[in-house]
Amino acid sequence: MINTNSKPYVLILREIERASLLKKILIENNINVIIEPLYKIQPIEFKSINFLNYQSLLITSVNTVKILSQKFSKEELNTIKTYCVGKVTEKYALEAGFNCIKTNSNSGITLAKNVIKKSTYSNKKILMIGATVLAYDPTEIFKKANLEIEKVHIYKKIPYRNLSEKSLDLLNKEKINNIIIYSPETAKIFLKLAKGLNTKN
């Protein structure tokens, strides 16, 4: 029998639901895994939106899909061409009724470039909906392409005050070999929470 306690861990800094697939793959390859969400999602009030006033919609997270699907009907969500970052976000969006345009974009910048290629130069803006802090802000790249973008914030991330006891224990004992981080914001939160840990690295 393999003693898994002696093996180092991979720490995934992400929501449990979003990290579950990667965790499953790593465990199947005999790798210890711990998932550490660093913040909670808090929806915020946002202005009334008529999707017909925009030529397309950019979505970069599953959280955006979940919040919008609670506010709008499937019929309303289907009225606007929607571009998503990543297959997981696209999957959730399709299930919620969004009119998704496939691009195979895996980052904010590749999504922006694909949207520019498919956009028409009309008087309608491109709408981007998401968190108050974005991993990538495409304003400049759209400006250079003579396209106007409007950003609407519908949620914010509230950082937790502490890391979990298990993560702290593993970090202090230097049993975590790799940390998977998905955004600059997540990295900043983690560094703040991990400050003062008794580790060499």
Rank of each mutant, 00 (worst) to 15 (best):
N3P: 02
N3V: 07
N5H: 15
S6H: 12
P8Q: 11
V10I: 15
R14K: 14
E15W: 00
E15M: 06
I16E: 15
I16L: 09
L22M: 12
L22I: 07
K24Y: 07
K24A: 08
L26W: 03
L26D: 06
E28D: 14
N32S: 13
V33H: 00
I35C: 07
Y39P: 00
Q42N: 12
I44E: 07
I44H: 00
E45C: 06
I49C: 06
N50V: 11
N50Y: 11
L52T: 14
L52S: 15
N53H: 10
L58C: 10
T64C: 08
L68N: 04
Q70G: 13
Q70Y: 02
S73H: 01
E75H: 01
L77D: 05
N78S: 10
G86T: 09
G86Q: 07
K87C: 05
L94M: 11
E95T: 13
A96D: 12
N99G: 10
T103P: 12
G108Y: 05
K113G: 08
K113F: 10
N114M: 08
V115H: 08
K117E: 15
K118V: 04
T120I: 15
K124N: 14
K124C: 11
K125I: 08
I126P: 00
M128V: 10
M128F: 10
I129T: 05
G130Q: 04
L134K: 07
A135R: 00
A145D: 10
L147N: 07
L147E: 09
H153N: 15
H153R: 06
Y155S: 05
K156P: 05
K157Y: 01
R161D: 15
K166N: 10
N172K: 06
N177Y: 04
P184F: 09
A187Q: 12
F190P: 00
K192H: 12
L193R: 07
K195C: 09
T199C: 05
